[in-house]
Amino acid sequence: MIYFFAGFRFVAKQSPSDLYGETARMTLQTPRMKGNPMFRWHYINSKYMYIGIQLMSTALALSKGLTPSQIICANPSLPYGGLSIASKTKILERFNTRKQFLHQQLIPRDMHLVDRKALARSFLETNTYPIIAKPDRGVVGIGVRKIDSENDLNDILNIMPSDYMLQQYCDYPLEYGIFFCKFPDEPRGTVVSLTQKIAPFVFGDGRHNVQQLVQINPDFKYNKDALLSHARNLDYIPKKGAWYQVIIQGSHTYGSIFKDRNDQINKQLESWLNELCAVDDEFYFGRFDMKVKDQEALKSGSGVKIIELNGCWSEPIHIYDDRHSLLFAFKELFLSYARAYHIAKLNKRRLQLKASFKELLAAYRDYLQEKEQIMRVVG
């Protein structure tokens, strides 16, 4: 019998649910779309799409009497409103008192190597291998490494071209992106997007290595090069009948599959998220990326570990489900940015906030240079 798991076709006597539990079972419910290019739009070079998004964002800002840079007023308490140019560590510090957040430690680039190693050792006194190392600023998993040993740690500490964050590793099997939105004049917020992230796997045959399994799989046709450029252990040959996770990044750019789970949004989920966000009464708009123990944990918030928080320019990533067309994506993005600018307008009026375009532009240029260095040095 032919099954679908994470978009891969394979022949097996066992159910994929037996092989990989809850993640496989949920993936089987919604196989990937084929044929119509309107449902493969997110594999096209994203710079063309973001030209349209930028024009749309500018029009929305002007319609609210704002400039595009004033979107950062949507989250007054977060640096740069939580944009990708902001420090992940500083954003997460706002929520450190909450048990749902993973432990993290900033390792500054301008710190002497000896001091970097001392800071890393201090972090490992309360956390054990494996851990995650990632740039303190950035998106889509660029420069992220899983650190399994002291040698791995020394490698990244020696070459890191920017400030890096060390983060506790979580092996919960499920991963989600949950978009939270709260208007300043309302007592509670709502979940406007719930998306399951499923990392790309290959199915071992005992003969081909990881690179070969990726290359021969037709489902990697549109993101094969990006996936291979960020994969590790490409020469490893998975055992016959064994699943092997190709990358750790939960990014659709590198082959992760995103599934729209908006039908699972409920009052119980919104309740614990409102309680979580209450620690920062000036946070209104953003997406929490998290690992989840099981479905019940998602409802209650008890078995959840939050990886990071993306602020006012983040996307409702359910749009990347293969069932959704480009037109659907633009409609959802329009609604999302309309919410952001509405919140920004209310906050700007209420708090007399200012957003310097010159300062934002300088920070963005610095971020782009940093991003190029990370891609060149770390990959």
Rank of each mutant, 00 (worst) to 15 (best):
F328I: 06
E296R: 14
N223V: 11
M56W: 05
I51Q: 12
M33F: 13
R116M: 01
I307K: 09
Y222V: 01
N217H: 13
K239E: 15
H324V: 03
H318R: 04
L227M: 12
W41P: 09
S256N: 04
Q268C: 09
I132G: 02
I317R: 06
F258D: 03
M33G: 10
V139M: 12
L368V: 08
D225E: 14
I147Y: 01
V140E: 06
G204N: 03
P79V: 00
A231L: 06
G81T: 02
K197D: 07
V144F: 02
D163K: 00
S15Q: 10
V139N: 11
M111I: 06
G21T: 05
F285S: 03
T126R: 07
E150P: 01
S271L: 13
K64C: 11
V139L: 10
K293P: 04
K293R: 14
F101T: 05
P108L: 08
I107S: 05
I51K: 15
Q14K: 15
L55M: 08
R145A: 10
E296L: 13
S300R: 11
T195V: 15
L55D: 07
L346N: 04
A297I: 06
I107E: 07
P316E: 14
Q168V: 03
Y43M: 04
K88F: 00
Q105K: 09
N217W: 07
S84Y: 10
K239Q: 15
L276E: 06
C170K: 03
D115C: 09
I317W: 05
V144C: 04
I53F: 05
N233D: 15
L269W: 04
H103S: 14
H208C: 15
T89G: 07
G189V: 08
E308L: 03
I142Y: 01
K197Y: 09
L360C: 08
R188D: 14
M1R: 11
L166E: 02
V292I: 14
F4P: 01
E296D: 13
I343R: 02
R25F: 12
N158V: 04
K182E: 10
P31D: 07
N310E: 05
F10T: 11
D281E: 09
Y254S: 08
D235T: 14
G81L: 03
A86I: 00
A297S: 15
S325E: 07
I156A: 08
F334D: 09
T89A: 14
C170N: 08
N223P: 01
I307F: 15
I306V: 14
Y43F: 13
V114H: 11
Y341D: 10
S46T: 04
I53W: 01
G81V: 03
N96I: 04
T97F: 04
I107K: 05
L346C: 05
D185W: 09
F201R: 12
G21P: 04
I257W: 08
I51D: 11
T195H: 05
N45A: 14
E282P: 03
Q168E: 15
G189I: 07
E372N: 09
G204T: 05
P173N: 08
